[in-house]
């Protein structure tokens, strides 16, 4: 490979940035704001201000597959049951948007997939209704119960799940190091058609940084993160606590075989890349749609907006 693995991964990250699809993001935001407003009008007195969630809110989004999530927090006495809440929001959105979008019930959300617009672009939004755990306590504790529509994994007998979306967002706030590796693993997941949940990868990366000594350049950090996953994900007793609900061990969404497979996959990726640098392109491809080929005009920044920069230490200049 003619450039270092570090430089290559920087290009991978650059090509997956949301700034390349800013017009598309704007369309999503406009539609999101419209839906939030409609919900607030329809459920006046029963609802708190809807909040933005998902990968975009957590700054872990990549531009390959993208949607926006809205959490809709209802008051405890707004509905008798969580199912009633879920159905009510579905019915409302269906009536409102049935001519403009496919509206469908999902696991904990209602998905709206708008028909292609004049540019052929499809806007996707996930609306997650939740009911506060205790009457009038949401603003204080941010705790919500979500209705679980599609049953899966360990939640087979459950029809609801307690969560704290704000805690999930806060968990990744101000962790740019972790976010870079999350974006890279999400790029790997999408390009290699892996089915692991993004939330699972997110928690694995954060735990790796918390538990292991993750340092070095971008490749070295990614490698150490993957090594942590390889060495731990298949271990008995390994836990992955959901910051929104400490009783929810997210690793339990994978069975023993799936955990071993993830461990083996991480091992294989590391070995293959170490054997031949060029293999990194297979696992972490550049999004060619936005590959920087010619010199781009203007000053560049690495994140969506300006922020603090701390230059490296002990830098030498001289004649």
């Amino acid at each position: 490979m003619d450039i270092s693995k570090h430089d290559y991964l920087e290009k991978v990250l650059e090509s997956h940035k949301m700034k390349h699809v800013s017009d598309f993001v704007s369309k999503h935001k406009t539609k999101r704001d419209e839906i939030k407003s409609e919900l607030q009008s329809n459920y006046t007195g029963k609802i708190y201000v809807p909040i933005n969630s998902g990968s975009y809110a957590k700054h872990t989004a990549i531009n390959i597959k993208f949607d926006l999530d809205i959490i809709v927090p209802f008051k405890r006495d707004a509905f008798e049951t969580l199912e009633e809440m879920f159905d009510s929001v579905y019915d409302f959105l269906y009536e409102k948007y049935k001519d403009k979008a496919t509206v469908r019930k999902q696991k904990v959300s209602i998905g709206l997939e708008f028909y292609p617009d004049e540019d052929g672009e499809v806007i996707n939004l996930d609306i997650v209704p939740g009911r506060e755990l205790n009457q009038d306590k949401y603003l204080e504790d941010k705790k919500l119960n979500l209705y679980v529509n599609t049953l899966y994994g360990v939640l087979k007998e459950k029809t609801y799940i307690q969560t704290n979306i704000q805690a999930q967002i806060d968990h990744i706030t101000a962790k740019e190091n972790e976010r870079k590796k999350i974006r890279l693993l999400k790029a790997w997941k999408h390009h290699n058609r892996e089915t692991y949940k993004s939330f699972l990868l997110e928690l694995l990366v954060i735990k790796a940084f918390d538990q292991a000594n993750i340092d070095g350049n971008l490749w070295e950090k990614l490698k150490k993160t993957m090594e942590y996953i390889q060495n731990n994900v298949n271990q008995e007793g390994f836990t992955l606590k959901d910051p929104g609900n400490s009783g929810n061990n997210v690793i339990d969404t994978l069975n023993t075989n799936e955990r071993q497979k993830l461990s083996d996959t991480m091992k294989r990726i590391i070995e293959n890349i170490e054997a031949n640098d060029d293999n990194i392109k297979i696992y972490f491809p550049i999004n060619e749609k936005f590959e920087e080929t010619d010199t781009q005009r203007g000053y560049g920044i690495k994140t969506a907006s300006a922020s603090v920069s701390i230059p490296p230490n002990n830098t030498r200049f001289g004649l």
């Binding site: 570090h6 920087e10 350049n217 000053y299 690495k302 920069s309 230059p311 830098t315 200049f317």
Partner: peptide
């Protein structure tokens, strides 16, 4: 600029805590 200067700027641009790409 010298080669030392150029190497320093490469290091700076690649530094994860530096948010600009064109120092």
């Amino acid at each position: 600029y010298s080669s030392t200067d150029l190497n320093a700027m490469i290091e700076i641009a690649n530094c994860e805590t530096v948010n600009i790409t064109n120092p």
